[in-house]
């Protein structure tokens, strides 16, 4: 059985390490925050200017001046700190963030990622995604294995405008996990969701990858 959204987030959370500073994208990546292993200190960064994101606030503690990058109201922790956008992206671009988990429309076998626009159809902008993929030490993409129409999203090459070139280190989908040790190596299929076969993954993937189950 394929992984659901929370299980995908839980799988990505296995890549967390004690002491990590982490930026989580909008959507499934946000759920990674609910799956931080007990006893592990992980500090979440919000690119609008905060380290130490707390849980959603109680109803009577909602503060319009305290939001995450998805514009949701959040709360602060005793160790939280605020800063301006220039400082926020200095720590992102400067390689001080250990890990980011992002959603994607397409990922290519060479590590390219596309997640910010569909020409003529959908335009939201890249927000901080281009800075994150350029600057963060490890990039994990969490996405459905195929589009709503059943088309593969892990491709030979991206058809949509890129967010970053040769930047993705790991892809977690509802069916499988792909990883590569460095940006010169091909991706390897390292894990399957329960009940999913390597053949099924191969049939729904156009990217070339090695199998290392």
């Amino acid at each position: 059985m394929a992984w659901d959204r929370n299980q995908m987030a839980a799988r990505a959370a296995k890549e967390l390490r004690d002491g990590y500073y982490v930026n989580l994208g909008i959507g499934i990546p946000t759920l990674v925050a609910n799956n931080i292993p007990a006893g592990m200190t992980v500090t979440l960064q919000s690119e609008n200017g905060m380290l130490g994101i707390g849980p959603f606030p109680y109803d009577d503690e909602v503060d319009p001046d305290l939001i995450n990058a998805g514009k949701q109201t959040i709360s602060e922790l005793p160790q939280s700190v605020y800063f301006g956008s220039e400082q926020s992206f200095a720590m992102i671009r400067g390689g001080h963030i250990d890990l980011t988990v992002l959603g994607a429309m397409e990922v290519a076998e060479n590590g390219d990622i596309a997640n910010w626009m569909i020409p003529g159809k959908m335009i939201k902008g890249m927000g901080g995604a281009m800075d994150l993929v350029a600057g963060v030490k490890k990039i994990i993409v969490v996405m459905e294995h195929t589009s709503k129409n059943g088309d593969p999203k892990f491709l030979k090459s991206c058809s949509l405008p890129l967010t970053g070139k040769n930047v993705v280190d790991m892809v977690v989908t509802d069916l499988a996990v792909f990883q590569r040790p460095d940006h010169e190596s091909p991706f390897r299929l390292i894990e399957l969701a329960p009940g999913v076969t390597a053949d099924e993954v191969a049939a729904k993937t156009t990217a070339a990858y090695e199998v290392a189950l």
């Binding site: 220039e86 926020s88 671009r93 901080g128 995604a129 281009m130």
Partner: peptide, 12 residues
């Protein structure tokens, strides 16, 4: 369209 960090740094 300007990446968020690039926009912040361009202004800084």
């Amino acid at each position: 369209f300007c990446p968020q960090g690039t926009l912040a740094e361009r202004c800084r």
